[in-house]
Design a protein around this nucleic acid. Structure first.
Length: 290
DNA sequence: AAGACGTGGCT
DNA sequence: TAGCCAAGTCT
C-alpha cells in the first residue's frame, strides 16, 4: 500500500465521481482556469458558477478585461466577497497584457509574480491550465493528507513546511498524473473528506487512512479561531461597497455613510480604508464612486 | 506571523 | 441561533 497506489485510486475515483465543473472542460483554457481560481479563493463553488460564466462571456481574454476599468471588474464581481480579488484579477490581466503578450504565462514563477496569485493559485494554474507537475496545496488537500497520512482530524492552523514536504511525497512523477492527483485530491476533500461529517463509507482510500484507523479522533490541537463578522469593519466595508456597486454615478458622501447608521466613526474609517485600498474613490464633486 | 479581508449557506 | 466553513493572499 504505497502512496502511488493510493493516489491512483483517488484518481480513478475522480474519473467516476468528479463534478462537471466548467473550468475543467477541455475547452477551458488557462484564462478560464485563472478566473475560476480567483473566484474560488474562499468562496464556495455553487456561488462562483453563475459569476464565472458571466465574467468569461464579458471578458473572454485577459486583454479584454485589462482594457476595461478596474471599477467595472469590481462591479461585475457582485456579491462574491473579498472584492479586492476583482481588483487584483484586473491588475493581473493588465500585467498579462503588458508583459506576457496577452497570454496567461505557463511559467510558475511568472504566475506567482501576478497580483493576487499566491503559492496555491500559481500551482493550480500551472497544473490545471498547463498540465505541469506542482504541489497544489489548498484547504481540501491539506485536510485529506492530515487525515490520510497524519492521522489528525485537521491540519495546523497555518501551512507548515512539513505539510509541503508531505504533499511533495504524494505527487506522482508523471506531470499528467500529478495534475490529475491535484484535481482528484482536492475533489476528494470537497466531496468526501469534508471538514464536518466526512463520508468515510464512500472514501476510495478508507482502508489506507490513518485517521479512520485510529477511530477518527477529534481535533486536539489549538482551537481554530472563528471568523466573527457582525459589526466589524469588514461588514461595514461590505455595506458601503454594496451601495457603490449598485450606483450608476457617484454617491454623495453623507448619503453613503448613512448606509451604516450604527456607528458613524466606524463608517468614516471604513470609507477611508476603501479609498486607501483603491476600491472606492472620492470625486471632485464630493461624491464617492467605485 | 497573526490578523484583515466579504458573503451566504448550513447545522 | 450563532458559529463554522468555503479551490487564499497580503502585510
Amino acid at each position: 500500500m504505497n502512496r502511488a497506489d493510493v493516489a491512483a485510486r483517488v484518481i480513478a475515483w475522480f474519473a467516476a465521481h468528479a463534478r462537471p465543473l466548467p473550468w475543467r472542460e477541455p475547452d477551458a483554457g488557462p484564462w478560464a482556469v485563472l478566473v475560476s481560481e480567483f473566484m474560488l479563493q474562499q468562496t464556495p463553488v455553487a456561488r462562483v458558477l453563475p459569476q464565472y460564466a458571466a465574467w468569461l462571456e464579458r471578458w473572454p481574454t485577459p486583454t479584454a478585461l485589462a482594457d476595461d476599468e478596474p471599477a467595472d471588474a469590481v462591479r461585475a464581481w457582485g456579491r462574491l466577497g473579498y472584492p479586492r480579488r476583482a481588483q487584483r484579477l484586473h491588475a493581473a490581466a493588465t500585467a498579462i497584457r503588458d508583459h506576457h503578450g496577452g497570454a496567461v504565462p505557463a511559467d510558475h514563477d511568472a504566475l506567482l509574480a501576478l497580483p493576487g496569485v499566491g503559492a496555491y493559485t500559481a500551482a493550480a494554474v500551472a497544473s490545471f491550465g498547463f498540465g505541469q507537475r506542482h504541489v497544489v496545496l489548498d484547504t481540501n488537500v491539506r485536510r485529506v493528507l492530515a487525515r490520510l497520512e497524519g492521522g489528525q482530524a485537521f491540519p495546523p492552523a497555518s501551512l507548515t513546511r512539513a505539510e509541503v514536504t508531505r504533499a511533495q511525497s504524494w505527487l506522482p512523477d508523471d506531470p499528467a498524473q500529478a495534475a490529475a492527483w491535484a484535481a482528484a485530491s482536492m475533489e476528494l476533500g470537497a466531496l468526501v473528506c469534508t471538514a464536518d461529517s466526512p463520508a468515510c463509507e464512500r472514501c476510495p482510500v478508507a482502508d489506507a487512512c490513518a485517521w479512520l484507523r485510529a477511530g477518527r479522533p477529534a481535533w486536539d490541537g489549538p482551537p481554530r479561531r472563528g471568523q466573527t463578522y457582525a459589526g466589524t469593519d469588514r461588514q461595514c466595508r461590505g455595506v458601503l461597497l454594496g451601495v457603490l456597486r449598485a450606483a450608476d454615478a457617484g454617491v454623495p458622501r453623507a448619503q453613503l455613510l448613512a448606509a451604516w447608521p450604527a456607528d458613524a466613526a466606524q463608517a468614516e474609517r471604513a470609507l477611508a480604508s476603501l479609498i486607501t485600498d483603491g476600491l472606492a474613490r472620492s470625486r471632485g464633486d464630493g461624491t464617492i464612486s467605485l
